[in-house]
Write a protein that binds this DNA or RNA. Structure first.
Length: 323
DNA sequence: CATCGATGTTGAG
DNA sequence: TCAACCTCGATGG
């Protein structure tokens, strides 16, 4: 899935468009019978912890969603167009006065989740010009849950988890999650503590959602490169300051990701390089998905190696991996 | 058109 | 450790 930053953006979309609204909740696909528990209730909050999304309702029930590797939300109707996936200069979550709020009749659709192309359905109005665009649009594909308000609709497809929880269930899920910088003020200390208590190498620790919530395969590889750290270094033997710097780098990268919708992990770029990085995903990272290509710093070929069934990328030279 | 793989997690063995 | 889950863009014929 998109890593932690995307889920925070999804939560923001829900807060922006659904807060206080009574909604119809259904499962067009039919595989989420519990959706009736939420149907007809009003949304009271939405927030993310790591890669987990929680949407709370005035009944006290909570919708808990994890996108897994393919999941995505499609928003349609009176939603702000989120063009950050296809162009530079994303601005979702910033001001609302950019003229990007469109009426339901204009039928926009913004997708947040798996790295699929942003859906923008303005086509029907071109095609017709005659027939009025209908709201809500018919579900596309297998929609696990549809959350419909009077002027906005959200469709969820392909999630790993989609369930209704009582507050106690939320506590249970959150209890096994490590700190998320946007949720936990004492996150840095908790992160250090948990690193101190693990026997795994840092390349695994960063992916362990009990140690730190929200980091995935891209941020893992990029953070280790940025820190010039071997993925194989024993976590508990790393200097405390090194762990603290890792946490602070995650804080920084997460903030950029939430703001822009892009996993921008290379900084110090010129404006032109930045534009290229946003346009081509191949130019966006230091090591991720760059196996065999020259390190951007030392030109040593980037190495890919499996670690716990995930692809791990690193520069053996810059990150001091002998092999 | 068919196949592959992916920014994850779970649970069987 | 590995298959299953479940979707769809990218890739190759």
């Amino acid at each position: 899935m998109p890593e932690g930053h995307s889920v925070h953006r999804i939560a923001a979309q829900f807060r922006r468009h659904y807060l206080g609204k009574r909604v119809a909740v259904s499962s067009p696909q039919g595989r989420f019978g519990d959706c009736v528990l939420l149907d007809g209730h009003a949304v009271t909050d939405a927030y993310a912890v790591g890669k987990h999304l929680f949407v709370t309702f005035d009944s006290g029930d909570v919708l808990h969603v994890h996108l897994g590797i393919y999941g995505a939300w499609d928003f349609a109707g009176a939603v702000e167009l989120d063009d950050t996936a296809s162009s530079a200069g994303g601005r979702m979550g910033q001001t609302n006065g950019h003229g990007t709020v469109v009426g339901a009749h204009e039928d926009s659709l913004a997708s947040i989740g798996a790295p699929r192309r942003t859906r923008l359905r303005m086509g029907e109005s071109e095609q017709a010009g005659v027939s009025p665009v209908v709201f809500p649009p018919a579900p596309i594909g297998q929609v696990r849950v549809r959350i419909l308000a009077d002027d906005v609709v959200a469709d969820l497809r392909g999630p790993t988890v989609c369930e209704v929880l009582a507050p106690s269930g939320v506590a249970r899920v959150r209890g096994v999650l490590g700190p998320d910088p946007l949720v936990d003020k004492k996150g840095e200390d908790r992160f250090v503590e948990r690193c101190r208590a693990t026997a795994t190498p840092i390349g695994r620790a960063l992916m362990n959602q009990r140690i730190v919530a929200g980091i995935g395969n891209v941020y893992r590889a990029e953070m280790l490169f940025r820190a010039a750290l071997s993925p194989f270094a024993a976590t508990k033997t790393l200097p405390e300051e090194t762990l603290r710097e890792l946490w602070r780098d995650w804080v920084k990268l997460l903030a950029i990701g939430v703001k822009t919708g892009q996993m921008m992990t290379m900084d110090g770029l010129t404006a032109g390089q930045k534009r290229a990085a946003l346009a081509n995903r191949d130019d966006r990272h230091w090591v991720y998905r760059r196996a065999g290509e020259p390190c951007r710093v030392c030109a040593t070929p980037i190495v890919m190696e499996m670690m716990e069934a995930r692809k791990l990328y690193f520069c053996p030279q810059c990150q001091g991996v002998s092999g």
